[in-house]
């Protein structure tokens, strides 16, 4: 692991190595990938102020209205954290390259591809996944209800992403025309490919959402 240590550069030389050995002695080998964060915190122990903007591994995330404490690597994407650390597998990974939309979640009410944002970048922001849409009593969100009523999906792998994209888009345009909605949720692909049926369902979703906000 030491050779791959991303931060200790040549000019830090011998001191870096001894620090690293010191740390290694203290923490379990399983955490080796992220020894650097310990190094930075260790920096102050060794009398060096840590650099501005250094991040801690343990973070608190606001996910679906809950504060979740989680151990996050520097290079970890939100989709990985949601699925593999928080157990929220409703968020799908289709491409991991911003090219399909299956991983769409809301961050501060705006749709983002969770495969393409660092978990560390959403600290202090409000993350909502497909699991967070229904009310605590189990009542479906109007967009979910519309999908149940109109169907429109086949295998439905793409569905959570489409639902999140639609929920987010409707917040900016509650009364879209069909072409406007199509453009608004055009960042989501469906392999089974009945976009017309999906749009039918989401136009109904827009109507349900308007109705429920009036109620």
């Amino acid at each position: 692991m030491a050779e791959n240590d991303p931060v200790v550069t040549a000019d830090e030389g011998q001191r870096g190595v001894s620090r690293r050995n010191f740390i290694k002695g203290v923490i379990a080998a399983g955490a080796a990938v992220s020894t650097t964060s310990y190094l930075f915190r260790g920096g102050s122990i060794l009398g060096q102020p840590s650099l501005p903007g250094a991040v801690e591994r343990l973070v608190t995330l606001n996910v679906n209205g809950q504060q979740r404490r989680v151990d996050v690597m520097k290079q970890e994407t939100l989709a990985m954290t949601l699925r593999y650390k928080l157990g929220l597998t409703g968020t799908k990974l289709g491409c991991d390259r911003s090219e399909c939309g299956a991983c769409t979640v809301l961050i501060d009410d705006v749709p983002h591809y969770s495969c393409s944002i660092l978990t560390h970048s959403v600290r202090g922001r409000k993350v909502v996944t497909i699991e967070g849409l229904a009310s605590p009593t189990g009542q479906l969100h109007p967009v979910q209800q519309a999908v149940v009523d109109a169907q429109g999906f086949q295998c439905a792998f793409c569905m959570p992403g489409f639902v999140m994209a639609t929920v987010g888009y409707l917040k900016t345009n509650p009364n879209p025309t069909r072409p406007e909605l199509a453009h608004g949720i055009s960042g989501n692909l469906c392999r089974c490919q009945d976009y017309n049926k999906i749009l039918d369902a989401m136009m109904l979703a827009a109507e349900y959402t308007r109705r429920s906000s009036r109620a």
């Binding site: 791959n4 991303p6 903007g53 991040v55 520097k74 290079q75 990985m80 491409c95 390259r97």
Partner: peptide, 20 residues
């Protein structure tokens, strides 16, 4: 594009302003 595990490690800084 191939989905693999997470990206290789890098050190991450999230500075609060342009100076930093």
């Amino acid at each position: 594009a191939v989905i693999r595990d997470v990206m290789p490690a890098f050190e991450l800084f999230q500075p609060a302003n342009v100076e930093e």
